[in-house]
């Protein structure tokens, strides 16, 4: 709670900066409109203004600043415009409407969750295999680590189109992308976690003549929990990015990625920004959900507070 005031201050500063930034970003268009409406603007006429930088123009026309915060298709929409759009497209629209962000969010979310589920389960299973088989460890682990350094997201458009060409559409291709993006972080994190017991811990198990299975269930698995959740948080964020990028290449009509894309086609900046905030909120909710699961699990294990 000590940080509440500083955080609020920083957020307020960001919002203030945002409003200020809107002025030079949108001033040219605002000046043009004002002139059309008969409001005097200095300098007069389009041509001299086009030559002029945004900041000097804004400085000479303070009376039209307010106009920069209410445009239809601004270069930078003001915070309240985004907030209103978000409110209208979530709460005020029916969730079945094509214009409802809840509808688009759900399309993206469902692919994310399915993919994340597959990726996480497969990742944990492979990690268990790696910890138990030396051959698997030596064969697979270097590739799993290397895969973290390459932009595997680049395969996404191809997966969409290839599956589309064999008749698979909709949720499945996006879920596959989400799955493989969350898979590798989970493998790497889980292997680290299963290996986290110290030699002393393992020796202690040996003095009790514990079987391999007992060592796994009573030592390795509990020890891996914090690592698992840390990588799940990374994994679910990656899954969401995967699902969104998966919506780009076919020009899909549904999903948050599609909203971003169609917004950028038609210059609907307010729509882009609200879709962007929707993805941010979605990501935050997903990560927070994993964090809540982590707390609950650790509490049940008696280590959390």
């Amino acid at each position: 709670m000590r940080s509440l005031l500083p955080v609020l201050t920083v957020v307020a500063a960001i919002l203030a900066f945002w409003y200020v930034a809107c002025i030079p970003m949108n001033i040219h268009f605002a000046a043009m409109q004002a002139e059309r409406a008969g409001v005097p603007v200095t300098p007069e006429g389009m041509a001299p203004r086009r030559e002029m930088g945004a900041i000097p123009l804004a400085a000479r026309n303070p009376h039209i600043w307010a106009e920069t915060w209410v445009q239809d298709k601004p270069r930078l929409p003001a915070p309240h415009q985004v907030a209103i759009e978000l409110w209208q497209t979530t709460v005020e629209k029916k969730v079945t409407s094509k214009r409802s962000l809840v509808f688009h969010g759900w399309v993206t979310l469902s692919a994310t969750l399915v993919g994340f589920g597959i990726g996480a389960v497969a990742g944990v299973l492979l990690a268990v295999g790696i910890v138990h088989s030396r051959a698997m460890d030596m064969s697979v682990m270097p590739w799993a680590i290397a895969s973290q350094t390459i932009p595997i997201l680049a395969i996404a458009p191809m997966i969409i189109v290839v599956l589309n060409s064999v008749g698979v559409q909709g949720l499945v291709p996006k879920a596959i992308i989400s799955a493989y993006l969350s898979f590798f972080p989970v493998v790497v994190g889980m292997v680290k976690g299963l290996r986290s017991p110290t030699p002393m811990d393992l020796d202690l198990m040996r003095t009790w003549n514990a079987s391999r299975d007992q060592t796994f269930r009573k030592l390795r698995l509990p020890a891996s929990v914090p690592y698992l959740f840390a990588s799940l948080k990374i994994g679910i964020a990656a899954s969401l990015v995967g699902a969104i990028v998966g919506e780009l290449p076919t020009g899909a009509a549904r999903g948050l990625g599609a909203r971003l894309l169609s917004g950028s086609y038609y210059g609907q900046t307010v729509q882009i920004w609200s879709a962007l905030f929707a993805t941010a909120i979605l990501a935050a909710v997903l990560v927070a959900a994993i964090a809540a699961m982590e707390r609950a699990t650790l509490k049940r294990m008696g280590v959390g507070r």
Binding site: S3, P6, R75, A237, L240, A280
Partner: peptide, 29 residues
């Protein structure tokens, strides 16, 4: 320190977001 306590939670939060979504806006600008 005030700035650190304010910006760090915000920064960690933003670092977890799908920032790649800003691409259409920045391409426009």
């Amino acid at each position: 320190d005030f700035l650190r306590r304010g910006l760090m939670p915000v920064g960690s939060f933003v670092a977890a977001l799908p920032i790649v979504g800003t691409a259409p806006i920045l391409v426009m600008w």
